[in-house]
Design a protein around this nucleic acid. Structure first.
Lengths: 330, 330
DNA sequence: GTGAAAGCGCTAACAC
DNA sequence: GTGTTAGCGCTTTCAC
C-alpha cells in the first residue's frame, strides 16, 4: 500500500508551508515566482495529487457531476455521457451516471442524493420531474444544467433549435403529397408535454396539413411503445401516410412493426425520427430524422457548468441547432 | 443554503454519542435494540445522510467505482454502465464513467487517477493496457474487476464462455456449405491478441474448415474499420464466403460496405458479429451474432466488487455464457 | 508574500 | 453496550 503523498510532504520538500502549496494550486493569492517554481518542482518530484476527499470535506463541494438521464443505454445519452466526461475531465471533474428509467421517484431520489453528497454540478434530462423538484439543487447552490426541449425553471438550459429542421422535415414529407400526418409521442405525463409534437403542430399549417389529436398516440420512449403505437395508428380506418416519432428509439420500434405487418416504408408510410441516434443510419430503410447532436449538447453543458464554477449567477440558455437528415424513410 | 445535518445532530437528538450513530450505520459493533431504534428515528426525522467526503477522508476509501472502457458510446458498454450503476446503487456506490478511446495512455492515466482518488473499485475492459499496468491498483488495494476474453493478471475476471456459441456459429455457417471463412479482427497491438479469433481458429477444423492468416484483416473496433476490412477481404482474388467480426460495431460497418459494393448478405457472404449490441437486430439483414450479455457482465462485476468489499482476498473468475443468435445474415 | 492553525464530519481505537 | 477523542488532508482566516 503506497502511502499517500500529502501537501505537507510537498511543503516540506519545497521549504514552504502547506498554505503556500494550496495557493500555488488554486491561484487564489499571488505567489512569488521562485516559490511557485520550488513548489511545482516538489509536486512533480513526489507525484503529488490532491486528496479530493479532504478538499471536498473542507470546501463542502465534491468534484462529481451527476448526469441524470432516463436511459443511459439510449445511444443519444451514451454519447452525451462520453462527451461530457471528456469535456469535464480537464476541470478535474468526474461524471457519475444515473439512470432514472423515466421514473419520477428515481429522478427525485437521484437529485436528493446529489444534494446530500454535495455534488459539484448536475446535468439532467428531466422526464417526469417537475421544475420545482429542482429547488433543492438551487437551495443547495449546486450548478444545474437542464437538457430539455422547453424551459424548466430558473436554471441553465441546453435546448434544441429545431424550428428550421422541423420545417424541412415537414416539407420533405408533404412534398411527396402526404397529408395524413401522425405522431407517436411520449407519455402524456411527461414533463412539459411533448414539445416536439407542439412544434410540428404549429408548423404543419404552413404545409397545408395538420396533426389532429386522433392521429397522436402516446407511449414510453421504447421500441415496444413505438411498435405498439405504429400498430395502433395503422389499424385506424384512415391510417396516416406519414408518422413522426418523438425519438429514434420509438421510430425504430415502429419500423420493426412495419416490417412485421408488411407495410412498406416509405412506400405506404413515411417515417421520421428525432435525435439521429447511432443506429438511425443502420436500419433499412435508413431512417430520416431530425438530428440533435449529443456532442454539442455535452460541450454546451460542460461550458455552462464551467461558467457557474467560475461565478456566474444568472441563468443562461444555449440553443443547439438541430438538423434535418434526409435519408430513405420518407 | 440548507445546512448539512451531521452525525452530531443525530447523536444529540437520539441522546447518544456520534460513535453509536456511526455503529448503527455500519453495524460494525452491536447496538442495543432500543438505542438503535432511537438513532434510526432521529436519522429519519432529521433526514440525515452521511457526508461521504468526511467518510472517505477518514477511511481512505471513496464511494466511487470507475468504469473504464474503450468506448462508452458502444451500446454494449453503455448497457454495462447502466447495469453496473443499478447494481452498485444499493451499496451506496457511484459509477464514474471513463472513456479511453482505446488509447493506452488514456487507460493508464485513468488508472492512475483511480489510485490517486482512492476509488473504491475499478471495472475495466483493457484494450491496449498490459496486465502489469494494473499493479498500481493492487498495490493500492483497490478491488479490480477485469472484463475481458482472457485472464489479465491476478485480479477478478468476468469472461465469456463462448465455446458452445462459437461452435454453433461455425455450424450454422458451414451448414450452408461455406468454407472460405474470414475474420475482421481487432488491432494487432490490442491486449491479449484476439481471443475471439483464436477460439474460432481452434474450433474451425471440427467443421472441416480453417481461418488462414491471409483471410484475417485487422483494425480498430469501429464502423470505419469494419467497412475497410470488408472491402479489403472482398477485393481478394478468392474472397471469403463468410466473415466473422470481432464485435458488432465492426460487423455493422462491414454490412454497410456490402450494401455499397452491391454484395448480397447472406447470399454472397455470410456475416457474423459478436456481442449482440442493441442495433444488431435492427440492421437489414438482421445480424447473426454471438451474444455476450452486458447485463450479466454488469451483475457479475458488481457482485465480485461486493465480495471484495466484504473481505475476499483471492482472485475469482466468473464465466458468463455467450449465446448464438441466429438471425438473417448467415 | 508567507505562515500558523482551526476545523470540515466522520471512524475507530481505547477506555469504561 | 456505549462514550471520548484523535486525526484523516485540505482550505482559508488571521496575523505578520
Amino acid at each position: 500500500m503506497r502511502e499517500q503523498v500529502t501537501m505537507a510532504d510537498v511543503a516540506r520538500v519545497a521549504g514552504v508551508s502547506t498554505a503556500t502549496v494550496s495557493y500555488v494550486l488554486s491561484g487564489k493569492r499571488p505567489v512569488a515566482p521562485a516559490t511557485r517554481a520550488a513548489v511545482e518542482a516538489a509536486i512533480a518530484d513526489l507525484g503529488f495529487a490532491v486528496n479530493t476527499a479532504a478538499r471536498s470535506l473542507r470546501t463542502g463541494r465534491s468534484s462529481l457531476v451527476a448526469l441524470i438521464v432516463p436511459d443511459i443505454a439510449n445511444p443519444f445519452f451514451a454519447q452525451l455521457a462520453a462527451t461530457l466526461q471528456e469535456e469535464l475531465r480537464g476541470l478535474g471533474m468526474h461524471v457519475v451516471v444515473c439512470n432514472t428509467r423515466a421514473d419520477r421517484e428515481e429522478e427525485r431520489a437521484l437529485l436528493a442524493e446529489a444534494v446530500q453528497q454535495r455534488f459539484a454540478g448536475v446535468v439532467i434530462t428531466p422526464f417526469r420531474l417537475l421544475p420545482k423538484d429542482l429547488d433543492t439543487l438551487s437551495t443547495a447552490g449546486i450548478p444545474t444544467v437542464v437538457s430539455a426541449d422547453v424551459p424548466f425553471g430558473p436554471v441553465d438550459l441546453v435546448t434544441p433549435d429545431a424550428r428550421a429542421a422541423t420545417r424541412q422535415a415537414l416539407e420533405g414529407v408533404t412534398a411527396a403529397r402526404r397529408r395524413r400526418i401522425a405522431m407517436i409521442a411520449g407519455p402524456r405525463d411527461a414533463t412539459g408535454g411533448d414539445p416536439r409534437l407542439e412544434l410540428l403542430r404549429s408548423l404543419a399549417p404552413q404545409f397545408g396539413t395538420s396533426l389532429p389529436g386522433a392521429l397522436v398516440v402516446r407511449g414510453e420512449h421504447t421500441r415496444e411503445a413505438g411498435a405498439a403505437g405504429f400498430a395502433e395508428l395503422m389499424s385506424r380506418r384512415y391510417p396516416p401516410d406519414a408518422v413522426f416519432c418523438a425519438n429514434d428509439v420509438i421510430a425504430v420500434g415502429a419500423l420493426g412493426k412495419a416490417h412485421e405487418l408488411g407495410i412498406d416504408v416509405p412506400g405506404d408510410v413515411a417515417l421520421v425520427g428525432h435525435d439521429d441516434a447511432s443506429f438511425a443510419s443502420l436500419v433499412r430503410p435508413r431512417l430520416t430524422t431530425i438530428r440533435y447532436p449529443a456532442e454539442d449538447v455535452g460541450r454546451a453543458a460542460a461550458e455552462l457548468l464551467r461558467e457557474r464554477f467560475e461565478g456566474r449567477r444568472v441563468p443562461k440558455t444555449v440553443r443547439v441547432r438541430a438538423e434535418f437528415v434526409a435519408r430513405a424513410s420518407v
